[in-house]
Design a protein around this nucleic acid. Structure first.
Lengths: 113, 113
DNA sequence: CCCGCTGAGTCTACATTGCCGACATGATGT
DNA sequence: ACATCATGTCGGCAATGTAGACTCAGCGGG
């Protein structure tokens, strides 16, 4: 069993957040698109999918195949979705972050006088 | 060599933030105290110090010995401090977090209608 | 037609982080 | 002295992060 603590890793948080941002259109490429656009972070497909799979094993997300009817590309795609467990793990991370950064706003924002 | 990306891990962020919170009194025990109080996270000394040491190797923090004059305990203690590099790494994490959570406030806060 | 390109996903392997628990050390107080 | 307590140190194993090479199926040009 997992044993003691089970916190979300840094990248796992990002991935889960990206899925939430995408609402219903969270498939592979879109997720890495959000990651790059919002977090300025480029990851290889391997990196992304292995995290996605681990997150699934932990019950934090689920997915279903979606026949790609869109323009180019005819492959079935996986559409991801955060589970309630995933959401509450994310909330815990969020709360920890908020508590830890409380009072440090000035230090953490780039100086813009 | 290390090269490519160098993002802070989840725990590394917490540790750096704890040091910032403590201003000038950031020594071992105090750091894990903040971690527990603010992030509800308990870690063993080994866990803490190994992260601290890695952070130092990466140039994100420095420390100096401090003769413990306080009540009990007479050992020299290490007083930690975040370097400018550490601070900017933290700012990057902070910005990524802000961008990724933008628009998800409702979803991320515990329902308290 | 056939062939190579492309996009979505899979697999394998390795580097970094996270996390202990056991040990070392020195000051204290009894 | 000796047990004790607070700090750090060590070595190692588990979990996370990350790449890159490989598969598969349609598309389009020669």
């Amino acid at each position: 069993m997992g044993r003691t603590n089970n916190f979300l890793g840094e990248f796992e948080q990002m991935v889960l957040l990206a899925i939430l941002q995408l609402e219903a259109g969270a498939f592979g490429a879109a997720i890495s698109g959000v990651l790059e656009a919002r977090a300025d972070r480029r990851v290889s497909r391997g990196a992304l999918y292995s995290s996605l799979d681990r997150l699934e094993r932990k019950g934090y997300l689920r997915w279903e195949l979606e026949a790609a009817t869109s323009a180019r590309a005819g492959q079935p795609m996986r559409r991801f979705e955060v589970t309630p467990e995933g959401l509450s793990a994310l909330r815990a991370s969020h709360e920890a972050w908020v508590n830890m950064t409380d009072g440090l706003e000035d230090v953490l924002s780039p100086r813009v006088p």
